[in-house]
Simulated assay, not measured.
Amino acid sequence: MGFRKLLSALGIQAPDIETVVENPRVRPGEELRCVVRVRGGGAAVDVERLRLDLVVRAEDHEADGSTAWNHPYPVVTADLGGFRLGAGETVVHEVSLRLPWEMPLTHARGVRLPGARVAVRTELAIDDAVDKGDFDEIEVHALAAQDAVLHAYEELGFRMHEAEVKVDPVPWPSEWADRRTQPYWQEIDLFFPESWNRGREELETILIAREDALDAHPGGSPAVTFVYADLDQRAWTDALEKHVRHCCGMD
């Protein structure tokens, strides 16, 4: 994947930039590898800033619809600084962006999560002209434990609606704060099974992943924790059902 974008504000002989994402399918905790090539134009210039941002679609940043992608939120940034770029010169940067364990997902159970988007954005600034380039969208796939929890919801009859990212200062219950390390979180909205007699009501679930375990917060409730080393689909489904029914006052 890659993009090529001219700094049109600097004229026809402006530098151009190309970013290639080498592994556009990743999981939380992994590294995203990118190669950035900046090619000089007809004259030498001072590049003030070259930066890569890993951005997500944040629900509360988009006021004009559920699929808007106008104000992406950066979750990981690599600042490559400034440098002198000669006429016709090519400068190459190899960049690795480490995804946090709490990275929002775009895919789970092999399918895209409605409303979820993640991309690499490259920013080049010269003489106060800033080119943010185009987005290179990537896929962030679920960890095995996240897939297992969402599989458990499927087994219980829940149906996927959408996923959305929330960013501080959206309120976060104080009793959960010790588990969360990022200023954002992803809510996965699911429709209740018909057999639960909740009509069209939705259950919002927040999955807070760590290196060795996963906290699932259903419906704004305290977490049920799943340890990766103990992954057992049947046991996890039973534990999730018990926890959700208790949180919903149905036990």
Rank of each mutant, 00 (worst) to 15 (best):
M1R: 08
M1H: 08
M1K: 06
S8R: 15
I12M: 10
D16H: 12
I17L: 12
E18L: 11
V21M: 07
N23D: 08
R25M: 03
V26W: 04
E31F: 06
L32R: 08
V38C: 02
G42A: 13
D46K: 12
V47M: 06
E48T: 09
E48Q: 14
D53C: 04
D53V: 03
L54F: 12
L54D: 01
V55M: 08
E59S: 08
H61A: 11
E62F: 05
G65E: 05
G65N: 01
T77V: 06
D79S: 06
L80V: 10
G82Y: 05
G82W: 10
G86C: 11
E89W: 15
L97W: 04
R98F: 00
T106P: 03
G110Y: 03
G110V: 05
G110S: 03
E123F: 00
A125K: 11
D127S: 13
D128P: 00
D131G: 10
F135I: 01
D136P: 01
I138G: 03
I138Y: 07
V140Y: 01
V149M: 04
Y153L: 15
Y153D: 04
L156F: 08
H161W: 04
H161E: 10
E164K: 11
V165C: 00
K166D: 07
V167G: 07
P169N: 02
W172C: 06
W176H: 13
A177W: 02
T181Q: 03
Q182V: 07
Y184P: 01
I188T: 09
D189E: 14
L190K: 05
F192T: 09
R198V: 03
G199M: 06
G199Y: 06
G199A: 04
E201N: 12
I208M: 04
I208E: 01
E211C: 00
E211P: 00
A223P: 15
T225N: 07
F226L: 01
F226Q: 00
V227F: 15
V227D: 13
Y228C: 06
Y228P: 02
Y228I: 06
D232Y: 10
Q233L: 14
T237N: 10
A239P: 00
V244E: 12
